[in-house]
């Protein structure tokens, strides 16, 4: 799932400074689940912005709406009238939704209200952890199902480095050492031989390093 978090209020305020009527547009999928841009967060942000801008002596109007999935034209079409009515759209979707809106409604600027953080797992209520870097060449079958690309600070393929201590990464005692986790898992699975193999440099061209990703399925195209 895409994990995002709201931008600081001050940054949002300065983004919308030149606009009077702002449509705050939430998205009902990933960012709803990660409490960043669902209908509830739209309401909270609208309330905060009404107060903050009033304190700044501005008279702004905030319209609230949420679509099911902001990365799809069909869902966004439902708010076309509201977009028309507004001076600017403040999107609480991930970066994909923001771009979809800009593409779909070129005459109206859509601003990002969130910072899109990572692909992650809601590991417990209120906690989200990065789990995938979308490297395009999954190695999980070699690493006991734990991703060293996303979860090792150095994306090592032949870890753990010398900074692994008590199961934690050297960069932060809150961060698990992915390679300790991999080692423990492989040991439990009786597959420590996978740790002995010198893994070759990774083919990063499958990731963003190879240019913007694109998948085309001719069989599915209309």
């Amino acid at each position: 799932m895409i994990i995002a978090e709201q931008k600081p209020l001050d940054e949002i305020k300065s983004m919308i400074a030149d606009y009077q009527k702002v449509l705050i547009l939430g998205c009902g999928t990933c960012v709803t689940i990660c409490f960043a841009g669902g209908e509830k967060e739209v309401g909270i942000l609208a309330s905060a912005l009404r107060m903050a801008t009033r304190l700044d002596g501005q008279d702004k109007e905030f319209i609230e709406a949420t679509v099911q999935r902001q990365c799809e034209y069909e869902f966004n079409e439902e708010v076309a009238d509201l977009v028309k009515e507004a001076d600017v759209v403040l999107s609480l979707a991930c970066g994909i939704g923001v771009q979809t809106m800009n593409e779909q409604f070129p005459e109206k600027l859509t601003l990002p209200g969130l910072n899109t953080k990572f692909l992650g797992q809601p590991t417990e209520q209120g906690v989200w952890d990065e789990r995938c870097l979308a490297c395009g060449d999954c190695v999980l079958y070699k690493t006991g199902g734990i991703c060293p690309i996303a979860r090792c600070s150095k994306s090592l393929l032949n870890g753990p480095c010398g900074g692994s201590q008590n199961g934690k990464c050297e960069i932060n005692p809150e961060v698990d050492c992915a390679w300790q986790l991999i080692y423990d898992r492989l040991k439990a699975l009786g597959k420590l031989d996978l740790m002995m193999e010198v893994k070759s440099p990774k083919d990063w061209s499958a990731s963003h390093a190879g240019g913007p990703g694109k998948i085309v399925r001719e069989d599915l195209r209309l």
Binding site: P8, L9, D10, I44, A48, M51, A52, L55
Partner: peptide, 8 residues
């Protein structure tokens, strides 16, 4: 936290 950010 919101109140602090808002300035209230």
């Amino acid at each position: 936290e919101v109140l602090d950010q808002v300035g209230i």
